[in-house]
Write a protein that binds this DNA or RNA. Sequence first.
DNA 1: TCAACTTTGTGCATGGCTTCACAAACGTCT
DNA 2: AGACGTTTGTGAAGCCATGCACAAAGTTGA
Lengths: 227, 227
Amino acid sequence: MSADPALRREIPDATVARLPEYLRTLSRLAEDGVLSVSSEELAAEVGVRSAQLRKDLSHLGSYGVRGVGYDVETLALEISRALGLTEDWPVAIVGMGNLGHALASYSGFVTKGFRIVGLYDDDPALADERVVGVRIRPLRELVDHHQVDPIAIGVIATPAPAAQAVCDALVGAGISSILNFAPAVLSVPDGVDVRRVDLSTELQILAFHAQRKSLAAGDLRTAVVAP
Amino acid sequence: MSADPALRREIPDATVARLPEYLRTLSRLAEDGVLSVSSEELAAEVGVRSAQLRKDLSHLGSYGVRGVGYDVETLALEISRALGLTEDWPVAIVGMGNLGHALASYSGFVTKGFRIVGLYDDDPALADERVVGVRIRPLRELVDHHQVDPIAIGVIATPAPAAQAVCDALVGAGISSILNFAPAVLSVPDGVDVRRVDLSTELQILAFHAQRKSLAAGDLRTAVVAP
DNA sequence: TCAACTTTGTGCATGGCTTCACAAACGTCT
DNA sequence: AGACGTTTGTGAAGCCATGCACAAAGTTGA
């Protein structure tokens, strides 16, 4: 017998990025009372090819039954395990402006797997306000909090100029997983993971494709440029 | 002489996704009074390899000077042109809960290139409220608005169950670029671009890496599983 | 029990992206 | 004017991810 492949082998980043999507869809199917799905059906729901789905799942182990498909509950559990969602991860949000408030009350957060344990902002106007049952505190209190009740993931929702300083504070406190909503590139030591979510980057990518479409749709600008 | 490569050749998706980052960094350098950068310097700022930066830029044309580097202003302008940001794109946001409010007042929006022209929500409690100078209206008024004053990009910030219906409404009105913040996979006809930003997906990816780190750091779970 | 049918798991080919390494091109200094 | 040092732009190689196609493995029905 071999050990769980999820814990031994390397899972490609591209696969990891798709697992949350599979999990979400499986959860919805489970709620709808669906007991079993084929790779073809699940792939159609998620919007990927069935071969890709099967290859992705093969990195976790072999949880399907040939001729039948996958048991929805089992597969959801195995993906949860692979992602590390069988226990809750404590999350702190720094920067409680509009975005911070939105994130704190976002339903996705309450989803199994994550728990908000700290909200931080140095603006005195926000001090002691409560959001989803957690009190907003000044950032300097984060270190003490982390020592008593460890924080696994730090979310930065401050304006861009403050982001690096906040990041340094988080890293200094010993937090090594950071989700950054500020439009800034953070420099961190090795071993710290940063993921960035940036609204304006996404808009700009959409603008690029929109421009291509409008040019392709008979706009004559290319012809004007060429002699 | 050939026409602008940005308008004739295909720019790889991976490159397009990095251009906004280059542009943001160049804008910051320009504000700091920097006139010229080498690919090495700019790549270090952005966090990519210099060879990658040069290859990315080569898809736009040849705007560098050998032995010197790139003129900051010129390069910023050319990237703006390639992304289609030399004119403003009208944006509408649907769903004005916490997230919608945060997006509307997000500074990234006001950045050159985008302009909020419509805010929509069917909740009567929000009707006629003004955010950043724009009045919130019921979604059914979007079609009329779009006919008078075209909307290029639609942003969906509703809860997941409403997302597909809102998407259908946007597509029906003739909008073909959509940014989706709801945790749902949208099905759209060919020719419509959808980009999704999902908080919980990002958190789950972080959780995966955090778990790997904690396992690698001497946790004995793998040893227990193996015989 | 056995044949027919379904669906998984995966070797292999294909395509795209990243990285390397270097010639070509430019400025500078003598 | 010419040699030298620097930096770009790009062919070529390597790497990773995707998609194809099929054998293996399971179920169903007779």
